[in-house]
Nucleic acid binder design. Structure first.
Length: 218
DNA sequence: GCGACAG
DNA sequence: ATCTTGTCGC
């Protein structure tokens, strides 16, 4: 598993972490990806969904059936999820302007979370929205929608942002992966999470992969 | 050495 | 991630 660490170091070096990237108004199509796993066995279903960034209407959906070939190891999630996710993305007939995934990007032990892998491997602007804390803490987040607090490493580097997308719900954790800055990533997150805690991209991909997996188990 | 640990 | 029962609120 040393190769995995070497690969993450390689990807981290290839990631574009300085470009501001596309602002919300500059994105026409935004894609979301997610993977669902069967309780029994190693079957999985990956989903890729493309939404109209303006209306959030679904433009295209793709699901691929696959097999888990890598265990879940905190810090190595990309190696478990990416093979099937890439396969689903390759089935799309449109090329999205932006990619949103579950989990972290820069806010990762080696600065190489899923969003970094996905962004570098696709060459598309990409950031991650995680639902639970990982390795970085933050100050209290205001209660109103849009309130935020930086995720900071020990040496004071800002690696992400805890962001409240809805009042009365826990914040999400945004971190960039490739070719987009944190400010734009958070702006996109808020636009994609108008009604719910999570971005519509994540909700749609999660729903699609879960429903398709259910049809397999039946 | 032990605990914590995205999905 | 997935499983599960009940509960709160629009």
């Amino acid at each position: 598993m040393d190769e995995a660490l070497a690969e993450q170091e390689r990807l981290r070096g290839l990631a574009d972490l300085t470009s501001p990237g596309p602002a919300p108004g500059e994105v026409r199509m935004v894609a979301g990806v997610d993977v669902s796993y069967a309780t029994q066995g190693d079957a999985l279903v990956a989903a890729a969904v493309v939404l109209d960034a303006e209306t959030l209407e679904t433009v295209e959906v793709r699901v691929v059936e696959g097999t888990a070939t890598f265990p879940y190891v905190p810090g190595l999630l990309a190696f478990r999820e990416l093979p099937s996710v890439m396969a689903a993305l390759e089935q799309l007939t449109r090329t999205p302007d932006l990619l949103v995934c579950d989990g972290y990007g820069l806010a990762h032990p080696r600065r190489a979370g899923l969003a970094v892998h996905l962004g570098v491997l696709t060459g598309l602007p990409c950031f991650g929205v995680a639902k639970t804390p990982f390795v970085f803490g933050h100050r209290d987040v205001g209660e109103e929608r849009g309130a935020a607090a930086p995720l900071t490493s020990d040496d004071g580097e800002v690696v992400g942002r805890a962001l409240r997308t809805q009042p009365g719900v826990k914040p999400v954790f945004v971190s960039v992966g490739h070719a987009i800055g944190l400010d734009h990533a958070c702006a996109h997150t808020l636009r994609l999470a108008r009604r719910y805690r999570l971005p519509e991209t994540t909700r749609a991909a999660d729903h699609l992969s879960r429903e398709h997996l259910r049809t397999l188990t039946r």
